[in-house]
Structure formats: structure tokens, C-alpha cells
Design a protein around this nucleic acid. Sequence first.
DNA 1: TGATCCCGCCAACGT
DNA 2: ACGTTGGCGGGATCA
Length: 849
Amino acid sequence: RSAFSTPLKQAATSRVVLTERQPDCQPLTTPPKPKEALPADPWTPTSNLKMLISAASPEIRSREQSRELSNTPSEVLQAKPCLQEHLSGDEYEKSQPSRKEKSLGLLCHKFLARYPDYPSAAENNYICLDEVAEELNVERRRIYDIVNVLESLHMVSRLAKNRYAWHGRHNLSKTLQALKKVGEENKYTQQIQMIKKREYEHEFDLDGERNEETARPLGSNEHSEMSFVELPGMEFRAASVNSRKDKSLRVMSQKFVMLFLVSTPQVVSLEVAAKILIGEDQLEDLDKSKFKTKIRRLYDIANVLSSLELIKKVHVTEERGRKPAFKWTGPEVLPNVQDTKLETTSMTCPPPTSESITSKEQCSKNLFPSRGKQNFTRHPSLIKLVKSIENDRRKIQSAPTSPVKTSASTFVLPLQPGTNQNLLAFPSKTAQVPEVAEHQPEGQPKKANEMQTKLSRSALECDLSSPEVGPKPEAPGTTAAPSQQPAPTQPLHVCPPSHSSVSPVMLPHTHSAVSYAIYLHPSQAHTVTTYSPSFMLQPLPCANGTGIKGINSKVTTEEGDNQTAADDPTKSLTAKERPPVKSETPPQKCLKRSQELQENDLIKRPRIDKESLDPSPTFFPSGYLIPLAQCTHGNKAALSTTEKARICSLQHTTYHSPVAGVIPVTASELKAVNIPAFHITPLNIMLSPTSIAAAPVLSNSCPNSSNTSSAQNLSSPVLNFTLQHIGLIPAGVQVPANPLLQHVPVASQADNVSHSSENVNSQEEKVRKNILQLLAGDGLSGDYHSFTAGEFRPVPKEPQEPRTVTENFFRTPGGPNTEPSLGAASDGAVRTSQGMPYIPQRKLEVSED
DNA sequence: TGATCCCGCCAACGT
DNA sequence: ACGTTGGCGGGATCA
């Protein structure tokens, strides 16, 4: 718990405030980054506002702020309480803050002003909901709204009960990449078009015919509920959070963002968004109230996103009239992320040893309160293991027959059909194999492997080098000396991720290096089997620019700034946001390469995908993406780096099932974390293999998944490969001996695995068996669940740590969870989505208010 | 009016 | 049983 509860308000400077706020911060750590140093006024409501204002980008909300804030500073708000007493009724009322002053957007600004965009790794920015609510003078409920949205962007993660960790924008680029990817996989673009088309049709020929076709696709698709998309790293928290059915805000927020990222003009009208999000749209009859509610929620989300300056409100004018819409003003999401910068260091970094320990300890302190040592202990063994794994992997890859490119392979989360757990998958911790159903058919040519390998290298380099994807944390001026803190490597903890593969599906990264894990609802899982056709459909996946179907829209912002074209994202970026991120030059090369590869793959593979399409098509992946946790999971990060490289190379495979989630951490993450080179220590490397291993394809196949020929397709080599990895994985996981991990429930069979590497072998065997079974078809059974990683919680010493995982993730039927299936699910029934025809475009104009 | 969206009831969850 | 989360939608404000 935070030590301080004292309100900062009064005397501190904004900066100070921050610092104080975070009791937990380590002294050493650099001070919070104050974004531009703010004036050091006493902390008064007013000052607060000022901060906000200054902080706030002018573009967004400028109007409101200027109006509201400037004129009636919120002083009123805070001051009021005192005044109130004296005032008579009317006066009192007058003094009351207007509705606007209480807006979520404003509140969000205040909230954001409290934390640096790019907090240094060292500092732990803990957020205590109670405190915040109190300080901001709002009910907690409101804070939840904000936090939930921030969480969807992985800007915060939940640590424990009333507590969240602030990550700022470090993970933002990754998150966005992941979201974009998922959005593409979901075919959101098509869905949007569909909707528009329908509307269009409606206009003219009222119902005439928009029969099923039109309707269908939509319904089928989205319906599914999604889960949350998580980035590797942040998962822990997610896990806990996810356990619940997070139905809305979080997920809705991610979906909403996805819409922006996939749509060409990057302008999304509320109406369309609501329909898609409802997914449900089942069949047309949206009921009004539902729709209305959705819209309400979208406003809530939009307000927060606006405060983050990721979107801004505009109006789209169509024939019908003006419709409220939002335009994306956030950073462009590049397919790949990569920066150069640290890589060298990271690569070079010496293995962790004593020093690492230190760092690690810090980490653990922050993130995981008590455990650290253990991990280290295991080191050596792990290393060996890793190496061996690596070797194997190499062999495999190089092998002529080399199995399908690993990249392609994906693991699917096996969710039980009935269960609700939406999200599960945890990458990390346990590896349970069981569920895996089949692996995917994608028989992709292997040649890719070779290339990949090569690429991977380069990619790695890139990744490594570019530490920050987005985040460059260091705020100028800020104290932090990233270097100082060793990265918290807690290597140990990390490991797990790979295994987790089990549950989560690993997606090959398409262009982006980003990895994410998607959690699906069980129901979805079935459906999902297929790969997303989207790729196929869209030959030009990435293009952000001109879109395919563009609507002619004119966007105008209020301020009249760049409003016009909705598109140039570049402009919009704020300096703050984009800090380091964009420097992608070097990386770009990598990207290009990877893309090229991808393209090739696409070309090659298309057929397969198509096939998959037919059957029951749609799947919309819904998931939650988790970014790597920064410090927390330093290890992972390390792993990820390696993987990343691979991924990078591999990415092409877009097609995977939407469901899958990628676990691997990206280099960027590391950067974000500010983890020093350490991460890359041998351990990491070692791990990476594992993580990679995870990649092997296993798709949860639905039993019926016609498309996937998974089993059949597996080549023995592949199978072996897969098995090996799988087997390894578990071992690896355990090795780390991270307490957390340990707890994680392992697959029933696997569970025994001891942490030590030695045990691995036996374990492997088990695993293999399981896998085989799965392949055979057993896997489908819903029983087993995924495991998860534990979540990290700050609280030291609580024994329960592990609990989260178990409980949440593993809920078994019968338990509390059994919840009503999502309504959606039922209807979600499958509808196939076929490619959507392009919709005739209408003219739209976007205007500002 | 229609667009926004604050407010807070109350259920699901967690402890 | 009680505290935390957060879905949800009535109805107040705004434009």
C-alpha cells in the first residue's frame, strides 16, 4: 500500500506531487518525468488545471478546456466544499460545477496530469484508486472508467485491489500495433464496410433486400465477444482482471481503437462503431436500447481517448446528416516497430549475474515483492536448457523438412466451449499443453524458415537496437537514469511466457513485431479455428494510407488545424507521444524485408486460407492484448527479444487464426521498460528459444474445423518440433522457479513438473503425450484450461500470489464462473463471413464541430 | 431536439 | 458480510 496517503495537493509542485505520490518509488529511481517541467506552483486546484491545460494537447479539447477551464477554473470544484456551507441554496448551486466541469474528459486530464507519459522504469508508479478518487474529488466509479480504458491500452495495469501500476505510453505503440493486427484479423474493415453498405441500402431501398448477405457477415463476425488483447508483459494483470468477464469497457475500448487503426480514413462514426461493437448486431434488430447504451459507453471511452489525444471528435456529414464521429489523431501504427538504440547494448550485455541480481531484486521489489533470488539460482540450469533448446530449434529450422515455419504455427487457446473464461491464456506461466488442439494446417512452405532465420537476425538486431519503440522514456530532464537501474530483469519470471503458449495462440506477426495474446471466449474458440481471411481478402493489408475504400470524407477539426484530411496521421502526433518511437529508419529496413517475406508468404498461402474461409468463417478474434510488462517481466522481455527477431522475420503469416495471441515480447518492450542490456543476458536468450518453441503451431482446432487440416498436415518433423518445444517449454517455465510461476497450475498432467531443468525430460514426455493426444483429437475437449501466469502484484509477501492465476484462469465450470454464456455467444453462432464486397461509397464529409 | 454523458443503483466478484 | 468493480440506463445538460 502506498505509504502516503497524504494528499499532495497542497504544497507540492506537480512534480513533487508525483514523486510523493508514489511512495513506492525507489529512491534511486529517477523522478517521475514531469513532462515538461511544470511550474512549480503550489498544488492547487487551479494549478492542477493549469497543468492539465498545458499538458493537454491543444488540439484536442482545446475548446472545451479553454472555455471551461480558463473561465471557470475548476477551482470551483474543489473549493466548493468549503464554500458550500456558507452559501445559500442558490448560491450554492451556482457554485456547483457545471456538468462540463465534471466531464470524464476533464477528469481524465486531471488524472493523466498526475503521471508522466513515460515513467522511468525504475519508478514504480502505483496508482491507488482511492487516493486518486479522493484527490480528484470524484467517486471511484469514475476512476474506473478512466482506468479501464487506460488499461485497454496498457497504459496501466492492475496490480491488486485498489491498485494499479502506471506505465504511461511506453507500451502504447506496441499495444496499438497489436490492436491493429487483431483488428485486421477480425476483418473490421470489412465489417465497417458492411455496415455502411447496409445503411446505404437502407436509405435507398429500405429493406429491400439487404438480406442476409449483408446482414450476415456482420452478425457472424463480430459477435463474438471478445476478449482482451494483451501484450506480452502485461499479462499478469490482465489475468486477474480478465478472469472476470470483462465485457465491456476494456474490450470495447480496444475494439474501438481497432476500428480506427484499420479504417482508412481513420475516422469512425459512433454509429458504426456501436454497431460493430455490439457485434451483436445481430441480425439487424438492434434493439434500440442496446444501441443506445453502447453509444453511451462509447462516449465514455471516447472521452478518455480524447484526453489521451488519440482521437478527436469530428462530424461526418452524409446525406443523412451529420453524425458524430471521431478521428484518430494518435500515432501511426507501423507495422513494425523497431527502433534502434539499445540493441547493441542489449545484445552485448553480459549475462546477469550478481549485478543482474541486483537489478532483479529491484524489480522484484517493485513488481514482485518478494521473490527474486530463487530465480537466479536456477540460472545455470536454465541456461543449459535453453541452449539445448536452441540447438534443437536450429536443427529443426534448418532441417530440410523443417516444419512449417514456426512462425506460422500458432497455438490456440483452448477454451472450453462452455466456459466463460474469456481470456485466458496466459502466456506465461504454465504451460499446459493439454488443450492444444490441433495445429494448424497452414502448411507453409518452409523456405520461409531460412529466410526467416536470416531475417530474424536482422530483425533482432533491429529490435534490439531499437529499444524504444515508442517509449522512450526518458524524459528529458527527468531524473531517471535508466541505465542505472539494472533492468529488473527478473528473468525468471519471464520464462513462462512461452509455455503459456498453450493457451494463447501465437500469431505470427504479420508485419508488426508486436506480439500479443488474445483471449477468446470459449465460444469463440471454436469458431475461430480458421485463419483470418482478411488477409486474403485484402491484398494490401498494411497500407494505412489510402484506403481501400475510402469514403470521401472530409474531416474538419474544430480548431481548424489539420483537419482536413483525416488521414495524415503524422501531423497529429504530438511531440510528447511520439518521443522516440518513430525513429524507425533502420528498422524499417527490417520491416521491409519482413514485409516482403510476408508478401511472399501471402502469395503462397492464399489458398489455404481461402479454404478455411468457407466453412464457418468468421471469427473474430477478440482478445486482449497484453504488452510485456516492463520491469516486471524483464525476463520475458528478454525472451521476447529473441523471439522478436524471429517474429519479425516470420511475421508474414498473418493468416493465423485470429484467436491466437502472441506472446513474445518485443524489443520495444524492453526499451520501454528501460531495461538495460541486461535483459539480454544469456538467460534471456535461452528463454527465447522457449518462447519460440511456443510458437509451434497448434491450433485449437475446432473439431469441425474443416479448414484446418491440421493434423494431417503436420509433418513429422513439425510434429517433433512442436512436441519438443512444448515439452521444453514447460521445463523452461519451471526452471525459472519463479514462485509465481510455480503456482501456476499446470496442466494436469504436466503439473508435476519440477522447476529444475532436470525434471524436464520426464515432463516433456508427458507433454508430448498430451500433445499427441490432442492432435489425435482429444484436445478439443474442453476440460482443460489454460494456465496462466500469475499476476504480479506488488504486495510483498502475500502468500497468495499465485492465486490469481489459478482462480481466475482456471475456473472450472461449476465454479462461479459458469456464467451465463454470453449472449453473444449464442447468437454468435457462426456465420460465415465472406469477403465483403466493397461497398459503394458514399460521400461523407467530416467536419468538426 | 438531438447529442452528450453524469450519476449512481445494484449485481458480479473478491476476500 | 462487506468491499471492490463496473454494467447499465435514467434523465439532466449542452448545443
